[in-house]
Amino acid sequence: MRLLDSLFYWLQMKLVSEARPDDGAARETVLFFAQILSDDHQLTSFQIESKDELKWYVSYSDKDGAVKTVWFDREAAEMLLHDMGVYTKEDEE
């Protein structure tokens, strides 16, 4: 799986997991993608940096210490939240 795909899926599941803290399957899926990012892509850290009206920003570090930030379309990243009915208007703020 490509790095950007892995980061995107991790972001989607991280958002779901935060919206549904009692959802064990969501937590396990976040950990699954975190393992891929660590093992397959040798990332040492990755986290949500911020969001704005149109984008989610994720930063990550590789084994050499290089830090990079990528962005993902907010609507695409939040699609699972919409599909699950856990997205509310307040989440836009």
Rank of each mutant, 00 (worst) to 15 (best):
L31M: 14
S17N: 03
E93M: 11
L7Y: 00
M13Y: 04
D39C: 12
R20W: 05
R2Y: 11
D23A: 08
L4V: 07
K51Y: 07
E18S: 05
L3A: 03
A25C: 07
L3R: 01
V86A: 09
Y60A: 01
L43R: 00
K55Q: 13
L4R: 10
G65F: 01
K14F: 05
L80Y: 02
A26I: 05
A25E: 07
H41C: 03
W56M: 07
D62Q: 01
S17W: 00
L3W: 01
A77E: 04
G85L: 07
E53D: 10
D64V: 07
K51I: 03
L43P: 07
G24E: 09
V58C: 09
V67C: 13
T29A: 09
L37K: 00
D62I: 02
Y57T: 11
V86I: 08
A76S: 14
V67Q: 11
D39L: 09
I48A: 11
K89M: 12
S59K: 11
L80K: 04
L80G: 01
M79C: 10
K55H: 15
D73I: 10
A19S: 02
G24I: 09
Q47E: 11
P21L: 09
K63W: 11
M84G: 13
L81V: 09
D73T: 07
T88G: 14
W56V: 05
V58I: 09
G65R: 03
W10F: 05
Q42G: 06
A76T: 08
R20H: 06
L11E: 01
V30H: 01
S59A: 08
K89L: 12
E78M: 08
V30I: 06
R20T: 03
L43T: 02
D52I: 12
L11Y: 00
L54A: 13
H82E: 15
G85R: 14
V70W: 02
D5K: 13
I36F: 04
D22F: 13
F33V: 09
E92G: 12
G65E: 07
E28R: 08
H41E: 08
E28V: 07
M13I: 02
V86Y: 00
Q42N: 13
G65I: 06
V70H: 03
L37H: 03
A25H: 04
E75H: 14
E75S: 13
V58N: 06
L11R: 04
T88N: 14
F32C: 05
Y57N: 06
D39K: 13
A26V: 03
T88S: 15
E53P: 04
W56P: 01
E53A: 08
H82P: 11
